[in-house]
Amino acid sequence: MNLDEKIKQELESEAKKLDKILAHEPGIFNMLANAYKGALGGWLILVGIFTFLITLLLFWAGYQFFLVTELNYEQKIFWGLVMIFVGMVQIALKMWTFMEMNRQSTNREIKRLEMSIERLVNTLIKTKEA
């Protein structure tokens, strides 16, 4: 067996291990639920309510912009700008929510690594003492 085949086999075995690890990752709804249980859960609830209200405003501005015909051009420009601004606010709020979900997930993984390292150190200390 040459070096290229060995490298290929190692990469395939690592890919299988990663697939097993990723298969046990929680889905997006579980990640969102964990974020609400975290330290900033109250803020997430507040942001969720505010995002819902912003969405209603976005639909209202879209209705005013596209469907109401007796508006003059100045009002159409106003409602168009409201739609753009509110859409940007909604994007920012959703990005913050997803970043919080990512932060919670990363913290959980760091804690798992800390616990694994602590177990490894304790095992090494016990074997060294024996």
Rank of each mutant, 00 (worst) to 15 (best):
E118C: 02
I84M: 08
D19H: 13
L18Q: 10
K94S: 07
I117R: 15
A61P: 06
E12D: 15
L57C: 04
T97F: 09
V82R: 11
K20D: 15
W43T: 06
D4S: 01
F98R: 05
G27C: 07
I84K: 04
I21K: 15
K94L: 11
E114Y: 10
K76H: 06
R112I: 09
G42W: 02
I117C: 09
E109L: 05
G48M: 04
I91E: 01
F65Y: 13
M83R: 05
G41Q: 06
I49H: 03
D19K: 15
N2I: 01
R119Q: 13
A23L: 14
Y73C: 07
I110F: 10
E25I: 09
L113I: 06
A23N: 12
A130H: 06
E70Y: 13
L46R: 15
T55P: 01
T69Y: 14
M83Q: 10
E25A: 11
P26Q: 09
E118Y: 08
F59D: 02
P26F: 08
N102Q: 04
T106Q: 09
W43K: 13
Y63C: 02
I7R: 00
M95F: 12
F50S: 13
K8E: 09
K76T: 02
E109D: 09
M88V: 05
E70S: 14
L44F: 03
L57H: 05
M31G: 10
I28N: 12
W96S: 06
W79A: 04
A61K: 04
G62K: 07
M101K: 01
A92E: 02
T51P: 03
F59I: 05
A15M: 07
N102W: 02
L40T: 08
